[in-house]
Amino acid sequence: MTEPVETPPLVATPDIEANRKRIIAARNRATAWVLVGFVVLFFAITIVKMKI
């Protein structure tokens, strides 16, 4: 009789889940900074183009 094959868990372990949340939070922060940068950039371009 063969030993049952151990399959990897499909449900995330707490470690993996915490890591996943950390990565997504970091990505969200990076996206937010890029968007803020975009706003500042367009504001600056507008000011320069209008020669204020």
Binding site: P9, L10, V11, I16, E17, N19, R20, I23, A26
Partner: peptide
């Protein structure tokens, strides 16, 4: 509910 993930599959980091 805990998320269903493929084993060891994490989203890509910003890096």
């Amino acid at each position: 509910a805990p998320h269903l993930l493929a084993p060891d599959r994490l989203p890509a980091e910003w890096r």
